[in-house]
Computed example of a mutant assay.
Amino acid sequence: MSALLDPAERTARGARLQAELGGATTEPATPVEASWRDYIYAEIWSRPALDLRARFLIAMSSAATAGDAAATETYVRGALAGDLISLAELREAALHVAVYSGWSSGGILDAAVTRVADAMGLAAAVFAPIRAEPWDATARHEVGAASFKEHMLFGGPPPKTAYFEGGILNFVFGEMWNRAGLDERSRRWLTLVGVGFSGASTPIRSHVWSAMASGNASRAEMEEFVLQYAVHAGWPRGSVMQGAVLEQAARVEKNLPFEA
């Protein structure tokens, strides 16, 4: 028979992690507040299957996409204070969130970064312009198509509609995914949050497959991602994402290509 777990120990662990990671340190006044300490921090953030940098990226983008400015700011503060994500990387993260969760959500994250950076007295982060040099429109389509294949590991759409031409090829893969300010693994987490909230089957399945097929995330990390993501997305969206992870992990393990 296994030993019983001690609720007092869980509370102590949750309070410690909540304080260390940037959350509240006051005694909870409601069941929801208590659940942040005794479940979210004590039992999710303490799990070893995913690194803290990844958890912060998932949490802050999920909170911003859910419209929770206060939680977004808490995560930004924790990431900066813990030296886990730089200010310049956070600015790039906000741009990535804007693409996959909408510019309003990206704006919530960007504003939270500004508030925290100002409060900490940080100098403004230098960022590369969206595009500094003139370009040829046809060449940008070609760059976007090549970038799509590089990051997604399968061929992308032809520029036959405004969405594909002006969005996916021109900007998303023609420019944003190629920016040097944020590594590919980090961009994966932000993308997965955005497509997860969308509920759109093909983007969810394709990006889940690409995250694992690229080696950016293992099956165990993807399964842990689902739990961290569900905190702000909710368990029903988490269930959809979990199904996609199980389905696409089986394909990756058999070396099967993505199938729409």
Results as ranks from 00 to 15, higher is better:
residue 113 V to A: 01
residue 113 V to S: 02
residue 114 T to R: 09
residue 114 T to Q: 09
residue 114 T to G: 06
residue 115 R to E: 03
residue 115 R to T: 06
residue 116 V to L: 02
residue 116 V to K: 01
residue 116 V to Y: 00
residue 116 V to D: 04
residue 117 A to R: 02
residue 119 A to V: 10
residue 119 A to G: 13
residue 119 A to H: 09
residue 120 M to L: 15
residue 122 L to K: 07
residue 122 L to A: 08
residue 122 L to T: 06
residue 123 A to G: 13
residue 123 A to K: 14
residue 124 A to F: 14
residue 124 A to T: 11
residue 126 V to P: 02
residue 126 V to D: 07
residue 126 V to T: 10
residue 126 V to E: 11
residue 126 V to K: 01
residue 127 F to I: 13
residue 127 F to D: 15
residue 127 F to C: 15
residue 127 F to P: 04
residue 128 A to D: 11
residue 128 A to V: 09
residue 128 A to E: 14
residue 129 P to G: 07
residue 130 I to T: 13
residue 130 I to H: 11
residue 131 R to Y: 11
residue 132 A to G: 15
residue 132 A to Q: 14
residue 133 E to I: 07
residue 133 E to W: 06
residue 134 P to L: 08
residue 135 W to R: 09
residue 136 D to Y: 06
residue 137 A to S: 14
residue 137 A to D: 15
residue 137 A to R: 15
residue 137 A to Q: 14
residue 137 A to P: 07
residue 138 T to P: 03
residue 138 T to H: 13
residue 138 T to M: 13
residue 140 R to H: 05
residue 141 H to E: 13
residue 141 H to S: 08
residue 141 H to W: 13
residue 142 E to Y: 00
residue 142 E to P: 00
residue 143 V to A: 07
residue 143 V to P: 00
residue 144 G to Y: 05
residue 144 G to C: 09
residue 144 G to F: 04
residue 145 A to R: 02
residue 145 A to S: 09
residue 145 A to M: 05
residue 145 A to Y: 01
residue 146 A to W: 05
residue 147 S to T: 12
residue 147 S to N: 09
residue 147 S to G: 09
residue 147 S to Q: 14
residue 148 F to V: 12
residue 148 F to W: 13
residue 148 F to L: 10
residue 148 F to I: 12
residue 149 K to C: 06
residue 150 E to L: 09
residue 150 E to Y: 11
residue 150 E to M: 11
residue 151 H to K: 10
residue 151 H to Y: 13
residue 151 H to M: 15
residue 151 H to N: 11
residue 152 M to H: 05
residue 152 M to W: 03
residue 153 L to H: 12
residue 154 F to R: 03
residue 154 F to I: 01
residue 155 G to E: 14
residue 155 G to A: 15
residue 155 G to P: 08
residue 157 P to D: 00
residue 157 P to C: 03
residue 157 P to G: 02
residue 158 P to R: 14
residue 159 P to T: 08
residue 159 P to Y: 05
residue 160 K to D: 14
residue 160 K to C: 02
residue 160 K to S: 11
residue 160 K to G: 09
residue 161 T to Q: 05
residue 162 A to R: 09
residue 163 Y to Q: 04
residue 164 F to W: 13
residue 165 E to K: 15
residue 165 E to R: 14
residue 166 G to R: 04
residue 166 G to F: 00
residue 167 G to R: 02
residue 167 G to P: 00
residue 168 I to R: 05
residue 168 I to W: 03
residue 169 L to S: 03
residue 170 N to V: 00
residue 171 F to I: 11
residue 172 V to Q: 03
residue 172 V to K: 01
residue 172 V to L: 11
residue 172 V to F: 01
residue 173 F to E: 00
residue 173 F to A: 02
residue 174 G to D: 03
residue 174 G to Q: 04
residue 174 G to V: 04
